[in-house]
Nucleic acid binder design. Structure first.
Length: 293
DNA sequence: CATAGATCCTGTATGC
DNA sequence: TGCATACAGGATCTAT
């Protein structure tokens, strides 16, 4: 559930509270939460100062003093980073506790479904004079990054035979987009997610990219999308953008643009929501997309 | 290399 | 009431 807007909300909350603070202790309560870390979290973090809080796509990272290593976080689908008073009872799915110097709240990683995790990695060159943690180096910039290359994105999309929705979800083409905002951007652009990338005009891809940016920016302004308590900011508060969703999760509801009932289809072991009138299905698809009527 | 599908997890909702 | 199944879904792994 957490996609770029939700992760950015978390980044901002963390930045305001942990920047410049020193880690005094780390407690790992579930090994799966740190399974991707090549080094022991407590050993690597204790006594180190957090310099800032960065994000690319859905990845967060906290460079430590010296900027040779960083604490990397990914929320998966149910991860939360909470700033809690140490006296607050542990959450049911508390996985990692990070104590910070100079009083105040501690940082807690809570994750029901354990797809997310924390890890410590070396910072490596990103090829453009920048530095990124090792797991982040292989993903593309996100569409809200000032250095995102629009025309390179258009070329890559149009070179692919995959369905455009799958391309949107491919973090090596553009990062930060997940199932919710993919469906919303496709609805806004009037493009069916089953159309092959190479079938789209350059103008259509540019339009889609503009809608990706528009919907993620709007969601960020609302504090992100929350369907339940699984996505919250660092203070445990939900965002409001779920009230603004036009397609995602709206099966049977009228399309806000034309009134046609929104359809839901299975896709990549999940769901895709779209308006069958505004987003016409590609022709001659063998059984992948059920036809109307 | 590109592409497509399976898999990892647990809690909630629904069906019989 | 109990049990089985479907669903949520990001990233990664495997197979072709």
């Amino acid at each position: 559930m957490p996609e770029l807007p939700e992760v950015e909300v978390v980044r901002r909350g963390l930045a305001a509270h942990v920047t410049g603070r020193t880690v005094t202790g780390v407690e790992v309560l579930h090994p799966r939460a740190v399974r991707r870390s090549p080094v022991d979290l407590a050993g690597a973090l204790t006594g180190r100062r957090i310099d800032c809080v960065s994000r690319r796509g859905k990845y967060l990272w906290l460079p430590l003093d010296g900027h040779e290593v960083a604490l990397v976080g990914h929320l998966g689908m149910s991860g939360q980073l909470l700033l809690q008073p140490p006296s607050r009872p542990d959450e049911t799915h508390l996985r990692v506790r990070i104590r910070l110097a100079s009083g105040g709240r501690e940082l807690r990683f809570v994750d029901q479904r354990t797809f997310g995790g924390l890890s410590v990695h070396a910072m490596v060159d990103d090829g453009t004079c920048g530095r990124l943690p090792e797991p982040v180096a292989h993903i593309a910039r996100d569409p809200l990054d000032p250095d995102f290359d629009d025309e390179a994105f258009v070329r890559r999309v149009r070179a692919r035979t995959s369905e455009i929705k799958r391309i949107l979800l491919d973090q090596t083409v553009a990062s930060g987009v997940g199932n919710i905002y993919a469906d919303e951007a496709l609805w806004r652009a009037g493009i069916h997610g089953g159309r092959p990338g190479r079938a789209l005009s350059a103008m259509a891809v540019r339009s889609l990219l503009a809608e990706v940016r528009a919907v993620m920016s709007a969601a960020l302004a609302e504090g992100g999308t929350s369907f339940d308590a699984l996505y919250v900011n660092v203070n445990g508060e939900s965002g409001y953008f779920d009230r603004s969703l036009a397609a995602y999760g709206q099966e049977g509801e009228p399309c806000p643009r034309c009134g046609t009932p929104i359809r839901r289809i299975a896709f990549m072991n999940r769901s895709s929501y779209f308006c069958p009138a505004c987003q016409p299905a590609p022709r001659a698809r063998r059984s992948a997309v059920p036809r109307r009527g």
